[in-house]
Each structure stands twice: as C-alpha cells, then as structure tokens.
Amino acid sequence: MGGAETFLMKINRSLPSSYRMDFIVSTNEGVYEEEVKKLGGRIFRIPLRTSSPIKSYKALKKIVSDHHYDYVLKLCDTPIGYFDLLACKKGGATHLCVRSCNASSQDSFLRKTINNILRKPFNRIATTKIAPSSLAGEYTFGKNEDFHLLHNGLALEQYRFNKEERERVRKEWNIENTFVIGHIGRFSHQKNHDYLLDIFEEVRKEKNARLMLIGEGELLYDIKERVQHYKDEVIFCGLQKNIPSLLSAMDLFVFPSFYEGMPNTVIEAQANGLPCLISDTITKEVLLTDLIEMVSIEESPSLWKDKIKMNRERERTHYVEELKEKGYDIEDVVKTFISLIFEEEL
C-alpha cells in the first residue's frame, strides 16, 4: 500500500471500461490483489530482479510476448529500470512508458555509478516519461531531460473533513480529549520515524497527546521497541483503508521524510483540511494550500514541538475546491494519463 501502488490503483479505479490495467509484480499477495481482479485485471508474478535478474528478464519478456501487450508502464526511481523496459521491448511492446516514483534513494556508490551509466540508454528506450513532481522527474531522468508532469490525483470528495467520522474514530481508538499527531507511511529509513519520535517525545512532556502511526514496514519492530516506556501514547494502526476518516480524527499531520517524490499522504491531508508540518527536503510542489509549513530536519525536535504548539488552535475548513482548481481531481488526472500513455483524448 505504498505511494506507487496507491497511485496506480487510483488510476485503475477511474479508468473507463474500455481500458484495463494488468500488473506484473515480484511479491506475494498484496493489499490490492482482490480489488484488481474485481476490476477485471490480471496479476502476473515474476522473480525479483535483484535476486534473479536473468529469470526476471525472461519472465517479463515472455508475459509481454504471450499476451501481446503494446503498452507497458514501468514504475521506478532510477535508470536500473532500463532492463525491464528492454525485456518488454524484446517481448513486442511498442510503447514503453516510465513513471518516476521518488526524488532520491539510498543507493550505494556502485549503484549510483551504474545508474549514471544507464541513464542515456534508459531515456532513449522510454517512449513516454512521467513524474509526479519536477524533483522526482529530474532525479530519475536527469535535469536536462524532458518529461511530463502527472499529478497524484485523488477522489477529492471522499477526503472532505467529516466531524461525525472524527468523533467515531476518536472514540474507537480511545483518543478522545487528546491532541492527535498523525503520520501515514511505510516504516522505512526514508520516512524518518526515529526523528518523528524525537519530536513526539518533546510534545508529550507538555501536552496530553497521542501519536497515530499508519503503515507497516521493515522498521516497525524497532520503532515499537523504542516506545515501550510510553507505548500507550503511540497508536500503531497497521495498514488502513479508511484514510479519510483517520485524517479527520487527527489534529496535525507531521511528515519529516528525508526525501519524497510527491507524497500522496500530504495531498490527502490537505484535501481533508488537516494542517501539516513537513520536512523542507520534500518537493515544494506539494505546497498546494496554506495548510503546510516546512521545517528542516536539521533543526532540533524542540523547534518542531514549538511549531506544533502554534498549530493547535487552527480551525478545520474544506480545501477540496482549491485542489480541484489545481488539477488534483482524479477524473482530470485520468484524462491526462490516457492522453500521455495511449495518445488518445477522452
């Protein structure tokens, strides 16, 4: 249920019936699997490229060839995706599209060198290049390379602030009469949960507050271990599908990531009218409303705590119309998606 998967599913749900999206993955059954099947899509599994590169290449080529796919969309951060595009081309695909997913990564020196070598052939083989922000596009394709911006759109009406849902969720999670700081994201280095806990430790010294964490990931156990002495104040929600309701239950969204391409969750929070405190390393294109304040993660957690105190009394209002005007409604994004990928107009 990461950002890339969520983006694809938002598109998939809103595609006209004359289009279908199938998926090639290297994982076991995922969160969206049953929904993909209900929408008429097929799911193919291939070996993980990093573990079995030759088997992965052959399997990808065979799927594209056997099922006569003309259009392929590859989601990736770096030019290492070239090999998947090459496999698809050898399998007969004529339209090789790429969507950038991030604005940085934790690659080693060797991986960075390989990416730099592959960038030219990667850009040459891709017929359509898409990114959610300028920062993400430049990171994946290069600063002097042309690409198309495609917003991380939402079914905006679903994200309107709902007072009844706020009260219901707060009662369900036993967070009534508390100040709730929220975060949605995979428990990984990129999301910087350790620093988020540093901030919350400052807040809890002064206020009756709760930290609501939504997501799973490889660092979940480490984070749970760290909060053992105040575990009742940190709520681990796991993966959740009722994100609009959970956003309504929060009082402030705090997002101190090291890097992001164009974070879905920050857009969702703005649609809900939820004030956001985010790191200044995130692309400035996420500043869609006056709800966001950026702070450096080089600053002390106590400074973030002071900023949180300043946001405590903010009244919740709707921002759906503002985001619609800026092109973030999913129906408009799907029209752009179809025109970029299929070169057709709805």
Rank of each mutant, 00 (worst) to 15 (best):
G2A: 14
M9A: 09
M9C: 15
N12V: 04
L15K: 00
Y19D: 01
D22N: 13
S26K: 02
E29S: 09
Y32T: 09
L39A: 11
G41V: 10
R42Q: 06
T50G: 06
P53M: 06
K55V: 06
I63G: 01
H67F: 11
Y69I: 04
L73V: 01
C76G: 06
L86C: 06
C88Q: 02
S100P: 00
Q106T: 09
T113R: 08
I114G: 10
N115P: 00
N116T: 01
R124L: 12
T127Y: 02
T128V: 15
E138C: 04
Y139G: 09
G142T: 03
N152I: 11
G153S: 15
L154G: 07
E157R: 04
Q158H: 05
Y159T: 11
N162L: 04
R166Y: 02
N174R: 06
V180E: 06
I181Q: 00
G182L: 15
R186C: 08
N192H: 12
D194A: 12
V203K: 03
V203N: 07
K207D: 14
A209Y: 08
R210M: 10
M212G: 02
G215C: 10
G217N: 14
E218Q: 12
L219W: 02
D222L: 04
E225G: 05
E225S: 11
Q228R: 10
L239N: 12
L239V: 13
L246G: 07
L247F: 13
M250E: 12
D251W: 14
Y259F: 15
M262N: 07
I267G: 10
I267F: 12
I267K: 08
E268Y: 12
E268L: 05
E268V: 01
N272T: 15
C276N: 15
L288S: 11
T289R: 15
T289E: 09
E293H: 15
E299W: 00
E315I: 09
E315L: 03
I338M: 04
I338Q: 00
S339Q: 07
E345A: 03
